[in-house]
Design a protein around this nucleic acid. Sequence first.
DNA 1: GCCGTGTTATTTTTT
DNA 2: ATAACACGGC
Length: 738
Amino acid sequence: MDILAKLNPAQREAVEQVHGPVLILAGPGSGKTRVITHRVAYLIKICGISPRHIMAVTFTNKAAREMKNRLFGGSEKDHTTPLLTWSMRDQITLGTFHAICARILRRDGRAIGVNPDFVIYDAEDQLKLVKRAIQNVNLDPKQYAPPLVRSRISAAKSQLLTPKDYIEQSISYLDKVVSWAYERYQQLLTENNALDFDDLLMKVVELFRSHPEILAEYHERYRHIMVDEFQDTNLTQYELVRQLSGKYRNICVVGDPDQSIYSWRFADTRNILNFEKDYLDTKVVLLEQNYRSTKRILETASSIISANGEHNPRKLWTDNKPGELTTIVETYNEQEEAQFVISELSHLVEQNKAHLSDCAVMYRTNAQSRALEEIFIRKGTPYKLVAGTRFYERREVKDIIAYLRIIQNPSDSISLLRIINVPPRAIGKRSISKLSDWAESRKISLYEALRFIALSNGNQSESPKLPFNHRTTVLLAGFFDLLAEIITKSAEFNMTKLFNLVAKSLGYKEYILKETDGEERWDNILELGSVASKYDDLKPREGLTAFLEGVALVSDLDGLDDSIGAVTLITLHQAKGLEFPVVFIVGMEEGILPHFRSFDIPEQIKEERRLCYVGITRAKERVYLVHAFRRRLIGLSTANSPSRFLEDIPRHLISGTEVQWGEVRQPIGKTYPLASDSTSVTIIPELSPGNRVRHNQFGEGLVISCQSVTDDNEVLVAFRRVGLKKLLLSFARLEKVE
DNA sequence: GCCGTGTTATTTTTT
DNA sequence: ATAACACGGC
């Protein structure tokens, strides 16, 4: 019974309750993952359930992988003792909703007209298609912004609304527009033999609804189902869970309403409430003991979340030591903010209180990472950024993937258009739009159109007349031959060979090397190649399918490597589910956290507060909440007041000895010791934004911003006569005008 | 067909 | 402020 030995009574209850519906409300750090993994082990080892009969759904691929490692061991030379044997690893179904659904559709999608060779469209592809859809229904994409329409479509799909449903319940004209675009968009997806992220889920629900006999097979296959992060599921996912667990009702969901931070992605916390209603015999288990954080961290977090005023029967507690006070710091601007983080990090490391890899800097928006990075690079502090410029969104990576997608699915016109003239083949805009029109008028895919052109090239007697001159016909035919050739070869090439064919022998390498940052771009392609090579063991076409599915469903977090000795830079959203001994949350300001886009809507402010809660509860030992007096946002520097969330933290939890927030501070002459050298740097803006200055050449002006650069201060001044100038303080001889 | 300039939006969070 | 994008000239 050693599976139960290390669990507390509540955890044990959650593990042992293997039959019927179970709802586990698990606060942060309460051993949620532990419960899930032990529950799986218990099902297999004690109850004798085959791992084939178990499905566990996680929020990210990373979570799935880690769970697998805990269950079955990370690798053969893993020295930790896994709960189960390595050989069971491939039998269990453990992954994200999207990955699991993609698999179901490849297997059984045919029944509802989903071709198993479908490709998965990402946000960028979707946007292109939405734009086309809007044009196709004779509307102007400038008047109806494609991102908005896409978001509405996604919202509809997250609630299981088909275009028909949407039309029926649309009231406003905009709704009508969206419904028309939605309908056409779905047609286009079908024509391209593509599915978007939302389709993966919705089509499976559709499949199960229309084909009870297929659902029945899945009932027998998956007799035990578990879903993690249930507070972040949407209605479609909920329905899917309901369908799958419909027969045996062995369904265990784990969640925490206080950590619900994805309502903008149409996640719906009501799923938790509905669960208890739909399954009246639900066993509810509360996990309230926190094993992660110190008492003070937990108190800080609780003080913030309780200000949301939700009645909450759950009360987190911990046996851990009281620990350190929460540090709240105000800095002058975002550069200083980064410097503060670095200097504090170096103290912690010097005093042996933490390793760099124990520390994380969290922020609300990705844009905030930039200022941090700049200073980190300058000071030589190693960091790892989760999702820099996201690898799979880079142009060169997507280009190569587009070639590979066409091999899998020649109907994919979005991908075809992407590479028809990349590298340049003298096929210009004009020819491309003629080709598109022609294909559209004949209701065939671009690939088929190209095939037709290639066949008729050389025998002029071919009816109907092609709208291309000879030169263009030859070029298009040449392109078709190229695609046809790689498609033929793909039948027997493994992934490495196929990848090399596409990336190295089509002139792409030469082309990309000539571009700016060509070397770097080529390196990215080589990296993509090493990902591809992991699929070499599979049969040619299967390897390709698996590879494409893998790259479509990766998340940024997947690349996060915790073995490197560097600070982690991460958004608050990405940080969910992770933990670090030391956590900095920067940008604790009104407008950033809470984000100004949430100001008008109380529900959204609440979500911002939960986001803050998630951030703080990632910490085991130390929390720093940092806000800047000024911050450059979209060009201009603005003064931000401290986040309202800081006001919810009781005084006795805050260390306010060094710098106090809430007081107006003179932003002059503050000294911080720096990490890389043990000397100090003093930032002395002799001028501050708002000051009037005179320059003997440029005349009078207004100081917009000051920032320290290496050995100097850089001042941005708006001159009345000559406009914006960037000046170095020591050279510019500026005179202050009172 | 390509290149340059001027205009415009853009910034929340992502499977 | 910056990047993407459209338009117009070469």
